[in-house]
Nucleic acid binder design. Structure first.
Lengths: 145, 145
DNA sequence: CTGTATCCGTCAGGATACTG
DNA sequence: CAGTATCCTGACGGATACAG
């Protein structure tokens, strides 16, 4: 199993652009950064969060999402759903009826992720104003001498 | 101030691809998703987190970062630094010496963000294995019948 | 209803040479 | 040392049209 795990880890790291632990033990801080990257590479896409949030309320159908997400294309909806399913964040259940009916549900792992995201929303809400102000200041000072 | 805030908020939302609150009150869940997007649009870049982590330990110089970050190009380092500075997450201090010396320091806001990210790293560490396994399973079941 | 297949545009990001 | 200026590439994502 250790053999297996090594492979998996290396593969995962390769996929996420993170160097394998064994190869880069010299910058301890960056290991932490790398861990965060793993998450971002998974839910950093333009639509992932929206879908995850919607699916966290209970089973959702394809067309429901298409309407709820507002602006997503059919293609991106499918792609994002597949990726989330692949990572074990969504469960896809097909009802063999006619017309077809497919329901997506957030897995326990995804629900935990959703909880973790609360910390981020809190941060955004607290500092949203300060950030906007910082931008204005910066932009003002860096244009038209 | 309310006037000002409205403008800022609308502008911010425009910049982040989120619809202004007033315009989309119909999907309450997606508002939350939108808030998370604000964060991701700020630190979702390939190098932002790494730089933020490094700068959180104390003032860091340009070349220090270039070595520490491992794989970053000079161009992307500059760009990411500028963006973080613009959003008020980094402070850039120039020492008028020769040769020049520039130090980047994480602002209090950035440090708070850093704390919030801990929840995410914890999530990643707990489920990293499960996700890798889910991927293997998915890939096995979706290739060469 | 739930997708797949195609085509195409944009833009983050890499490599590298030059500069105050 | 700490950047800018260019050029170039691939991946992400939008717009349809078609299909089971």
């Amino acid at each position: 199993m250790s053999q297996r795990n090594t492979d998996v880890s290396a593969q995962l790291n390769a996929l996420t652009g993170c160097a394998p632990d064994a190869v880069t033990p010299f910058t301890p801080g960056q290991a932490r950064a790398c861990t965060v990257r793993e998450v971002l590479d998974r839910v950093g896409g333009k639509w992932s969060i929206g879908i995850l949030v919607a699916a966290s309320q209970g089973p959702v159908r394809f067309t429901e999402l298409e309407r709820q997400i507002e602006g997503i294309s059919r293609r991106m909806l499918t792609l994002t759903l597949r990726n989330l399913e692949r990572d074990g964040l969504l469960e896809r259940r097909v009802h063999p009826t006619v017309p077809p009916k497919v329901e997506y549900t957030a897995t326990p792992i995804a629900l935990e992720l959703y909880e973790s995201l609360v910390a981020l929303t809190s941060w955004a809400e607290r500092h949203r104003g300060a950030i906007a102000a910082a931008r204005q200041t910066y932009d003002r000072e860096h244009t038209t001498p």
